[in-house]
């Protein structure tokens, strides 16, 4: 574990150094990442130019949902986003070269082509979160205050599990990186909006089957003093760390199974 983190650190450091040699180009891509992400929120602002509430939630409350999932997802995408290129590496055979090095393959895949520009997405998420914290009217208690960083970290871990599981799936289906996008980017988009606007079956699905609801919906509803639309008890708001650990364990198993099923192609 420690070895893996150390290796992750120096591979990432190398990519960052190489990225920063072209400063202008780097600044532009960060701007692009920030803007592309910001459009989602601008669309929400445009909606609120016509309405005062969406699904019973105010702009500030939606900004809170948006900011929490945006920050958690931005963190994961920055740190592990590269794993979604796994199918590509399987297809062109370059995965073999990672397998003969004394560093875990997952670490190498996650650190490969580390894209610092993704910091733009993270910054945008944080930006909206800070805005939300200023405007929402919440009766803050110490528990609620602690809930915010807990959500961000657990949420990032849940998204990490989705990224890794998606990469594991690409051992089997190399061209299916878009399926992964549906769960990662699609999941993030879903969580930007309040659960009250979605069909209850969909909410149940992302609570019990693919537990994305624990990234922000469940704990955020506690912070915002809102009823859970599918009638779940409030204490579930304390579960995200456990859910995150469970998801990561399952994703780890999926990764190992995927790696074991790997049959190198070509000569």
């Amino acid at each position: 574990m420690g070895d893996g983190l150390r290796a992750y650190g120096f591979i990432v450091a190398m990519w960052v150094r190489s990225t920063l040699t072209y400063r202008a180009s780097f600044a532009m891509t960060v701007f692009g990442s920030f803007t592309a992400t910001a459009f989602d929120f601008i669309a929400i602002l445009l909606m609120f130019s016509h309405v005062d509430a969406l699904g019973g939630y105010s702009l500030g409350e939606i900004a809170f949902l948006y900011g929490t999932t945006g920050t958690a997802f931005g963190l994961t995408e920055l740190l592990m986003g590269s794993v979604s290129r796994l199918g590509h590496r399987v297809r062109d055979g370059t995965l073999d070269t990672l397998l003969v090095r004394p560093v875990p393959v997952l670490v190498q895949v996650a650190a490969d082509r580390f894209a610092l520009r993704r910091i733009g997405r993270l910054a945008q998420g944080l930006f909206v979160l800070v805005y939300a914290l200023f405007v929402i009217e919440v009766h803050w208690t110490p528990v609620k205050v602690l809930m915010v960083p807990m959500m961000l970290l657990s949420g990032a871990a849940i998204f990490a599990a989705v990224f890794v599981a998606g990469a594991a799936f690409q051992f089997v289906a190399q061209d299916a990186s878009e399926v992964q996008n549906a769960f990662t980017y699609g999941g993030n988009t879903l969580l930007q909006y309040p659960p009250s606007i979605f069909a209850k079956d969909l909410v149940r699905g992302v609570t019990f089957v693919l537990p994305l609801a624990f990234v922000n919906w469940v704990p955020a509803l506690y912070v915002l003093d809102r009823e859970n639309p599918i009638g779940l008890p409030q204490w579930l708001a304390f579960l995200p760390p456990l859910v995150a650990v469970g998801c990561c364990a399952l994703a780890g198993l999926a990764w190992r199974a995927g790696l074991r099923s790997y049959r190198s192609t070509g000569s």
Binding site: M47, L54, S177, G186
Partner: peptide, 23 residues
């Protein structure tokens, strides 16, 4: 995979539009 992704995004957007046009 693309069909799947387009469908997922379509669902998310359809629910948000429903909420918007409800309001």
């Amino acid at each position: 995979a693309g069909v799947f992704t387009n469908t997922v995004f379509g669902f998310v957007m359809a629910y948000t539009y429903s909420a918007l046009w409800d309001a």
